[in-house]
């Protein structure tokens, strides 16, 4: 259970962090026509989506763990899962960044197989290395444990966001 929380915290750190980073590009234009409360409402919708995404990532690695037969992953779930999540999210945002321009949209689609094939191979290898190298394993597990502190920010933020969104939609 503790491992799952650490993995969820790491996923949350990455996905919430990306959204907050992306918002820095939008805030200047929002300030032209949105009030501060409205901008927070946009964050509220986003944090709810981020919470779902974090849950999705956690479910993904739990599912992978169930299907992978070796003991290596099962014994070192926390470090292996965290490494995989870092690589998956990192790969997704790098791919988005590289093919951001509308002119590159067909390349974005045509590189999917190669990109994700390579990503999964790298993720698998890195997760094995992280599980086998004790010092790395320990360092990543510690890192994931420390990430839990961010949940004390993200979870209340998401609960407040949910209240805001529900009240905006229904009242």
């Amino acid at each position: 259970m503790q491992s799952a929380i650490s993995v969820f915290a790491t996923a949350a750190f990455l996905v919430y962090g990306w959204t907050i980073y992306a918002s820095f590009w939008k805030i200047p234009s929002w300030l032209f026509y949105l009030k501060i409360g409205e901008i927070y409402s946009v964050y509220a919708y986003s944090f709810i989506v981020n919470f779902l995404e974090s849950g999705l990532l956690l479910s993904g690695v739990i599912l992978a763990n169930a299907f992978l037969s070796g003991n290596l992953w099962k014994k070192n779930f926390s470090s292996a899962a965290v490494a995989v999540i870092f690589i998956l999210v990192g790969s997704a945002v790098t791919h988005l960044r590289l093919y951001e321009e509308p002119d590159l949209r067909e390349d974005f689609i045509s590189t999917q197989l190669l990109w994700w094939g390579s990503t999964f191979i790298v993720a698998l290898l890195v997760s094995v290395v992280c599980a086998r190298v004790a010092i790395l394993n320990k360092w990543i597990t510690n890192l994931a444990d420390n990430m839990v502190v961010f949940l004390y920010i993200y979870i209340p933020l998401t609960i407040v966001s949910l209240i805001i969104v529900i009240s905006r939609i229904f009242f």
């Binding site: 996905v15 990306w18 992306a22 590009w25 999705l56 951001e100 321009e101």
Partner: peptide
């Protein structure tokens, strides 16, 4: 416009946006 932008721009949602 933000999480799943219609036109161009980076999705602010890294997983579902992707």
């Amino acid at each position: 416009e933000f999480l799943f932008p219609f036109q161009s721009g980076l999705p602010a949602s890294s997983v579902l946006g992707y």
